[in-house]
Design a protein around this nucleic acid. Structure first.
Lengths: 239, 239
DNA sequence: TTTGCTGACTGGTTATAACCAGTGACAATC
DNA sequence: GATTGTCACTGGTTATAACCAGTCAGCAAA
């Protein structure tokens, strides 16, 4: 997708995101909508649409009468299958990923169970450090079945793993996830640049591919997030 | 809040919601936008705004060129406004509650902001210890507006607070909630019978009553759960 | 000095209008 | 009968305009 066919509100949103990521800090004010419409050469409603999207994503906050501000920094996960990169970009951060290791190893019991492996069977282990604007946010450990993904270790694993899975014919259709709080073990703490034992959010996710219910297990992951840089938010309704 | 001052897009949304709830079934088509603008006597952009909100809430689905349809009852999440007691019973535990204190006090800034209080205004503070089979699971601190709930402190607060609110004419219709991991402060750790600094799940919840969007704020709560005795689970779908 | 008002700014809502792109029924043509 | 094209519908995007309601700095009056 090049910018030639890009919708105006998408362009404006992208450019605002870049501004937030590169120049602005939490609490900084954006120009007013009427100034932005001149600056971007679009109508006010287009500016509002772009800003609304960023407000929804948590990157910006609007205050009536005062203006629109860069929000105070927590990335919000909104409980859908967005990739880390998408989440970070939506919040105005530049994501990056460092592959700690990608190898074949014996998985923990829960991963083996999910993937339908026998005791002692090996699986792919992909461990990655995820960063936002160069600062570590999470350590992700994914376990994947070698039989279904023969060439996985030669893929570029610094982007979206779900995209790699989709390109291999195994798009993740849904997942089940739990969240706990945990004390950061030493190795993880070092990677995340926090004190050992500091509280972290621990996500365990079981992902499925295929249209069946529940589908075919395709990934088991354990993600450890710095709690000061990541938060889950949700909207609750009457059951 | 009567309908006299109701925004047009809110009225249209409410009326569409009622139509969906009472008459239509999953898969049924709504009238087209241009017909709806005539029927509701508003501009098309107002109709679109109302529908957009319902699309976002999952009630409706829009298909370009075809129309807008009642969605196929996609279950967004297992997260809903169930009470602590219901959760525990569902998991096979016998719940109980001890009121730590219920008083009038100056709330923290976030609670004051949510409840629309001025700096220094007082609110009800209800602190409770929640137990399962006699073992502490969470410390809940709720802040509520005294103006709306004059007799609250004489209620039995060992059961469901939401039930008390409903009986007072303020049923909680929806809430927004965030989850973080945190280190247990000393006082909370003592109550939960864990080490100070142990990781806990920290929920902040902003609850609303009434049918408006977003409704009238009615409670701000901070709940601290022992991570080894409580876990959030959720089902993720494609966005 | 304090208080209150005003005006210029802010975001929020709604209207009218025009155009674009997708859908599918129906008619015309091969 | 099959294929293609047209047209009336659908939602999607964007523009211009007007008005409402909140914020706050500056100024005037008490």
């Amino acid at each position: 997708m090049d910018t030639a066919g890009e919708l105006k509100h998408v362009r404006v949103r992208r450019q605002l995101q870049e501004l937030v990521a590169s120049t602005l800090r939490p609490g900084d004010a954006l120009l007013g909508e009427r100034q932005l419409e001149e600056q971007f050469g679009v109508s006010r409603i287009t500016v509002r649409r772009a800003i609304s999207d960023l407000v929804q994503d948590g990157a910006l906050v609007r205050i009536k009468g005062k203006g629109t501000f860069v929000s105070h920094g927590l990335v919000r996960s909104t409980l859908h299958l967005a990739s880390f990169n998408e989440d970070m970009r939506a919040a105005g951060y530049e994501p990056s990923t460092r592959v700690i290791n990608a190898a074949v190893a014996v998985p923990p019991a829960a991963a083996a169970e999910h993937l339908g492996l026998a005791e002692g069977d090996e699986a792919y282990q992909v461990r990655r450090l995820r960063l936002a604007n160069g600062a570590p946010v999470s350590v992700d450990e994914s376990w994947l079945p070698p039989g279904a993904l023969p060439g996985l270790l030669s893929e570029d694993l610094t982007g979206s793993l779900y995209r790699v899975l989709a390109a291999s014919g195994h798009p993740v259709q849904h997942a089940e996830q739990t969240v706990e709080a945990s004390a950061a073990p030493e190795e993880t703490a070092v990677l995340l640049e926090i004190e050992p034992g500091a509280p972290v959010l621990l996500f365990r996710r079981r992902s499925f591919t295929g249209q069946d219910d529940p589908g075919t297990p395709i990934e088991y992951s354990i993600s450890t997030y710095r709690s000061d840089r990541y938060q889950v938010s949700m909207r609750l309704a009457l059951a």
